[in-house]
Design a protein around this nucleic acid. Structure first.
Length: 935
RNA sequence: GCGGAUGUGGCGUAAUUGGUAGCCGCGCCAGACUUAGGAUCUGGUGCCGCAAGGCGUGGGGGUUCGAGUCCCUCCAUCCGCACCA
């Protein structure tokens, strides 16, 4: 005797969770004759807040896919781990004195508890934690491989530093110029050296030079320094000039930092996008980030009073507009400013430079409308037209981009146009009627005018012509520019991977592999050192190995551990290698990776980079980690508000709030049913509200609502534990899928969950009689029952392959509705249906599977193949439309000839009524679809 | 500003990819059981209209026998990037 009620659900779900764990049914072997399938979730940062219902959305989807693939005969790798280093734990340690290792450990425990309750089929024996020394040993090891590599542009791949050294010994660097175009050899100021010169350099000098090539390198870089966090932030960790976490101000500061030379891989990262199945929008975001632009570097001769500077180089993507150049603008920080400013302009320039200094980077970025600038008094000579144009400085040109100088083409560029208008500079029109005198037109389609030898060409054509001319004359060259910058890889933090290097004479040397991991020293002091160095600098004994040997006081960013964890899952306990080649070859690429789109540029690019480097060095057989990426939409919170009449403890219902002066207050969604507030619960919610009074409408207190991000501070967080408590994990899983398409964002609303719960109960009832006794018959199924089953099996299989889970849930509901009204309790129908549903609702189906007499888990069953035979129809009820509007329905055999259908339709009374007896202009018969009569 | 998406009942959504718009669920209405339940079952429910019928997929236009679906245009919302030359 058993109803599918709260008690029974808890009994079933607890029973099977324990049984699965005990039997180890989720253990996955690397040795199998089955085809492999690798389904991966973006592993979570174990925050102290635990999971809310938004987190498991993607996990449920990947769990369904994993279980489905297993039923389809695949060996499925579906692991989970934790991105366990990170700032929040360190912040927490600073505030509460609890060691990050301890709080992280507790948080992970809680996460695992919550995840297990939902019934995921993770192979926990493969769990990895990035903060575990046995894991970060290999993060450090891979870092050292990157450190020991350079990018051979000729071969477009990474090679060992030793290869580079032997090249230098033979030919110097003439064929392999410094990747950084601005770099010049110390002392000599040159950019090349010969093999003899190389051999004459001392050790430190050689290391300094090699550092210019290493894929992981140290350099003084402008970094986002956040005083409050005492740390450097990556570009993507800075939002609107404040830190992503905490919202503290960020300023620029020069520090000697580790960077990854990801720019060398820009082209391959771009090209790789064509081979992988990411959404178009995701690829577009990455393309934008990489920001490839093709253009030209052009040298302009400079005429200034001081005659100190010969030329000025600009980068432009629009060399075709060369005849439209009316002025030049260089960044205020540009090194030539002081050397070209005329006496007459000196005061104005000084004043402007002062103004720019007072402006933070943030302000310069944020301000778009204001036009500022100053004339240097110098002129540049257009190398093609010979025309002299004034050189200005302006904050809208940034020193860090391109060459820090642009050619101003007001008729074709909006900012240049504003600049010209503001300072009354002349505007040369080279695009005829495409320019209206009021705003710039950045078209590529115009036919050029006022452009000498380019006249009559379209702008598109002219680009190549100009570049060729520039190269012929030796005054410029084709140039590819990438917006992307190298990735800052140092953090002034404690809770991260220490860099496995030793500094001798200020140069870093790789630690021996046998000495890895370099463990994070235990400490209770997590505060920044105050010198700009990280907390590790406080540990003198650790930092200073000997008199002239020192460790790095920085640690790696969380991106490091996340850049390769999917590789470790294939062989998580290997203490000889980061993963065996055999395991890597077997599991190969991740077949589907599900996670949020917020990792679009950082994590996904770094993971792709690390895999490419490891591939180039011969450790991997593939160079893209993720074959397919799915971005689940965010689940937003549905907040509720009460309206307090200002200065009172009276609360007015939403419909009446217009009559009072009120302040809206967030109220806990858990004490609101739909929109109706539980006023008693509200009084108990917080002491402040204990003697609240309510102004009701129709006897109810109605709340206001808003869709916002799910957050504790909005009191709109729904915890999966509570849902499971009331409805069970199977209902939660199916409801999350039922909400809508996986990739769409949607608000969470628990109201609809009853429908899914009732569905599972009805499914359960198919297997039980009125009294709750298990009752399944072995009678032959009818054709109708078979059709209901096979239609569902077909749709569900297709839906899962398309990651369309919401439609699967609907389909199951339809099937169970049909079988319920057919009162079907036949084994031949219910058993395959249970397997079909097992991926979505593992607990209930496992229980019924056992009741059906099976000893092995349903996980080892085979997904039933649908039979097209049962789905065939022999007749179809045609909608008969007249002039495109459906007016009648008529049933015809599916093999009935078109002509016969047409005749019968035209003869029908209903049709005659609409055609008024007139002969139709046209009759369209689409077999199995529709008949349309045109009058 | 650039790029990407999205827009369908009161709500979440579906639509065989050019062929009956609104499947499934929530909510709502009515009824049954009479076991007082936030239970279950049955029926109804896009809008207007007593009806016949008309109108309906963000707005406008187009292609087509036929458009939620394709094209043009405009609007709104969300996301990403942003003085990137």
């Amino acid at each position: 005797m058993a109803d599918y009620n709260k008690e029974e659900i808890r009994r079933i779900e607890d029973k099977w969770r324990a049984a699965w764990e005990q039997r180890g049914v989720y253990k996955v072997s690397n040795k199998s004759n089955k085809p492999k399938y690798y389904a991966l979730d973006m592993f979570p940062y174990p925050s102290g807040a635990g999971l809310h219902v938004g987190h498991p959305l993607g996990y449920i989807a990947s769990d369904i896919v994993s279980r489905f693939k297993r039923l389809k005969g695949y060996n499925v790798l579906h692991p989970m781990g934790f991105d366990a280093f990170g700032l929040p734990a360190e912040q927490y340690a600073i505030e509460h004195g609890i060691h990050p290792a301890k709080s992280t450990e507790q948080n992970i425990k809680n996460f695992i508890r919550q995840l297990n309750k939902i019934g995921f089929c993770y192979d926990w024996s493969r769990e990895v934690r990035t903060c575990d020394p046995s894991y970060y040993k290999w993060t450090q090891w891979i870092f050292l491989q990157i450190f020991d590599s350079w990018f051979n542009r000729k071969k477009e791949k990474a090679e060992r530093i030793a290869v580079l050294v032997s090249i230098f010994e033979q030919e110097g660097n003439v064929n392999h110029p410094f990747p950084n175009l601005k770099y010049k050899l110390p002392h000599s100021n040159k950019i090349t050296f010969t093999n003899t010169e190389w051999k004459s350099f001392d050790e430190k000098y050689k290391q300094e030079i090699l550092m210019q090539y290493r894929l992981a390198y140290l350099a003084y870089t402008d970094v986002n320094w956040c005083e409050a966090l005492g740390t450097v932030l990556a570009n993507d960790e800075v939002i609107n000039g404040v830190s992503y976490r905490g919202g503290f101000p960020v300023v620029r500061k020069q520090m000697r930092q580790w960077s990854l030379r990801i720019t060398e891989y820009a082209e391959r990262l771009l090209k790789g996008l064509d081979e992988i199945d990411f959404s178009e929008s995701m690829k577009e975001i990455q393309r934008n980030w990489i920001g490839k632009s093709i253009g030209a570097k052009i040298n302009f001769k400079v005429k200034s009073e001081q005659s100190k500077v010969d030329s000025l180089t600009v980068f432009t993507t629009r060399p075709d507009t060369i005849y439209g150049v009316d002025f030049m603008v260089i960044a205020p920080e540009h090194e030539i400013v002081k050397d070209i400013t005329s006496k007459a302009q000196q005061a104005e320039i000084d004043q402007y430079l002062k103004y720019v200094e007072s402006r933070s980077e943030v302000e310069r970025m944020a301000e778009v409308k204001k036009v500022t600038g100053a004339f240097t008094g110098a002129y540049a000579v257009n190398p093609i037209s010979g025309r002299e144009v004034p050189i200005w400085i302006s904050e809208y040109v940034l020193a860090g981009y391109g060459t820090g100088a642009i050619m101003g083409v007001p008729c074709g560029d909006e900012r240049d146009h504003k600049f010209a208008k503001h300072f009354n500079l002349p505007i040369t029109n080279i695009i005829g009627s495409y320019y209206n005198g009021k705003e710039a037109n950045p078209t590529y389609d115009a036919v050029l005018e006022n452009s000498d030898f380019l006249n009559g060409l379209t702008m598109k054509q002219a680009i190549d012509v100009v570049v060729k001319k520039l190269e012929e004359l030796g005054i410029g060259q084709r140039q590819v520019n990438y917006k992307m910058r190298d990735a800052g890889w140092s953090r002034q933090r404690y809770w991260g991977e220490p860099f496995p290097v030793v500094f001798k004479d200020d140069m870093p040397y790789a630690m021996d592999e046998k000495d890895l991991p370099l463990e994070l020293p235990d400490s209770n002091n997590f505060k920044p050192s105050g010198t700009g160095e990280g907390p590790l600098a406080n540990l003198k004994d650790w930092i200073n190995i000997s008199e002239n040997e020192r460790r790095d006081s920085n640690t790696m960013p969380t991106h490091a551990g996340a850049a390769w964890y999917f590789l470790r899952f294939t062989d998580p306990h290997n203490d000889k290698e980061f993963a065996s080649r055999e395991a890597l070859n077997y599991w190969n690429q991740v077949d589907v990776y599900i996670g949020g789109s917020e990792h679009a540029v950082a994590h996904l690019l770094y993971a792709r980079l690390w895999v490419k480097v490891l591939h180039d060095l011969g450790y991997l057989g593939f160079d893209e980690p993720f074959k397919k990426l799915i971005n689940q939409g965010k689940i937003t919170g549905d907040s509720r508000f009460v309206y307090r009449v200002r200065g009172t403890h009276k609360f007015v219902s939403a419909g009446l709030k217009g009559e009072y002066e009120t302040d809206p207050l967030h109220v806990d969604v858990n004490i609101v049913n739909g929109l109706e507030l539980d006023t008693e619960a509200f009084k108990k919610w917080k002491p402040d509200f204990a003697n609240a009074e309510f102004i009701l409408e129709d006897g109810k207190y109605i709340c206001g609502s808003a869709i916002e991000k799910m957050s504790k501070s909005y009191f709109n967080v729904v915890n999966p534990d509570d849902i499971i408590e009331n409805y069970g994990a199977d209902t939660l899983r199916m409801y999350e899928m039922f909400l809508g398409p996986l990739e769409m964002s949607k608000p969470w609303n628990t109201n609809g969950i009853d429908g899914v719960f009732k569905f599972l109960r009805r499914f359960w009832n198919l297997f039980h009689d009125d009294k709750g006794n298990f009752s399944v018959s072995d009678t032959e199924p009818t054709r109708e029952e078979l059709k209901a089953l096979h239609k569902t099996l077909k749709k569900v299989e297709q839906d899962i392959e398309n990651f369309s889970f919401n439609t699967s849930v609907s389909e199951f509901m339809i099937c169970v509705n049909e079988l319920s009204s057919l009162k079907c309790n036949k084994r031949a129908i219910l058993e395959p249906l249970a397997i079909g549903l097992a991926s979505f609702a593992p607990h209930i189906t496992e229980e019924l599977w056992e009741k059906l007499g099976h000893e092995d888990t349903i996980l080892n069953a085979s997904f039933p193949q649908y039979n097209e035979e049962y789905l065939k129809e022999n007749s179809f009820e045609y909608p008969i439309s007249i002039n495109g509007k459906v007016r009648a329905k008529m049933e015809f055999a599916l093999d009935m000839p078109k002509e016969d259908i047409e005749k019968t339709v035209l003869a029908a009374e209903v049709v005659m009524k609409w055609t008024e007896g007139k002969p139709p202009k046209k009759v369209i018969v689409v077999p199995g679809r529709i008949v349309n009569v045109v009058v």
